[in-house]
Structures are given as C-alpha cells and as structure tokens.
C-alpha cells in the first residue's frame, strides 16, 4: 500500500438494484453528484464523469475494471489532464438487515499524487447526497433537483470533490 486508501460507508434505505442504478445512471448522478457518470459499464469500457454544462466538460476519466451488478463496480480514476495519475475506486453494495450498505474505497494512488487530498472532502458530500436522494427523493446538492445549475463556486467544489 503506497498510500493509505480512503474508505467511506453509508447505509441507505433502498434496494441494491436502485443503488446500482443511482451510481451508473447519468440522470441520477447529475442530481446528487452534479455531473453525469457515462459508460456502457462493461468491463474494459471507458467511463467518464461529465459536467452537466454546455461544454460537457470531462472531469474524470477511466476504465471499468470490474462490473458485477448490483454488487461490485471497480473503476480506474484519473484527471483527464493527467491520465497517468491513476487511482482506483471500488463500490461495494451489500444488504444489511433492512438497509443497503455502500462501501466506497478509493485507493492505489500514485506515490506523488495529490488526488487523495482532492477527493477526501468530496466523497462524504457525494455519498450523503446520494443517500438523501434515494431516501427522500431530494439530493443534498444545491439546485440540481429543481433543474437549476449549481452556483459556479459550488460547481468547482464538486469538480474537486469528484
């Protein structure tokens, strides 16, 4: 382990299938993440995290490394400006009692990478917003639920978070 991984967990009142869809469906991700996750989600395929703006700014790129719906999704993760700075994100979905547990593990950072610092504040925000969207139909992100664009500053924060 070159650098310690980041590990996040949240328990959501939903089903594994709905949670899986919330991670891979652009319509969903736009609402709680501020950007769209786009791919055909087959192992080996490319995926991208794309801003919901006119330029369709690509914020994160990578490959689908593993895809076992609705249980486990592993992605490589890089800034499009520096695709050598690869890391790896694992989503694990598991039913616990009457809830669904989502683990997000972000690791395998390159030794000199700053990516861990960039994403460590963002993941808790993304995941609590995801939980809120699935449980109450309202994301915790500003604006996007009623179709408004997030404020410019919040948008930048999300880009960093993502």
């Amino acid at each position: 382990m070159s650098k310690p991984d980041l590990v996040y967990t949240t328990y959501i009142r939903t089903t594994p299938a709905k949670l899986w869809d919330a991670i891979i469906n652009p319509e969903f991700t736009r609402q709680y993440w501020g950007s769209e996750n786009v791919s055909d989600w087959k192992p080996g395929s490319k995926w991208a995290h794309v801003a919901d703006d006119e330029q369709r700014t690509v914020r994160i790129v990578g490959r689908v490394l593993e895809s076992v719906p609705p249980k486990r999704l592993v992605l490589s993760w890089a800034d499009p400006d520096d695709e050598n700075d690869l890391s790896r994100v694992t989503f694990e979905i598991e039913t616990v009692d009457d809830l669904v547990r989502l683990n997000v593990i972000h690791g395998d950072f390159k030794p000199d990478s700053d990516m861990a610092n960039k994403v460590s504040g963002g993941w808790p925000r993304v995941l609590s917003s995801l939980k809120s969207l699935l449980e109450t139909n309202r994301p915790l992100w500003e604006g996007s639920a009623c179709g408004k664009k997030p404020a410019a500053k919040a948008d930048t924060a999300m880009a960093v978070a993502a």
Binding site: D5, V7, W123
Partner: peptide, 21 residues
C-alpha cells in the same frame, strides 16, 4: 478494512456530513 491479519481503521465522515447538511 481487513488486510491480511491486520484490521485497518478509517475515519468515515459521511454521517458528520449528513448532520452538517
């Protein structure tokens, strides 16, 4: 997270963020 025989501990800030939000 279990790594071999070791159990590694991580701060999970998601519940704190829920309270904040």
């Amino acid at each position: 997270v279990k790594r071999g025989r070791e159990k590694l501990h991580y701060l999970n800030a998601v519940p704190i963020n829920e309270i904040y939000m």
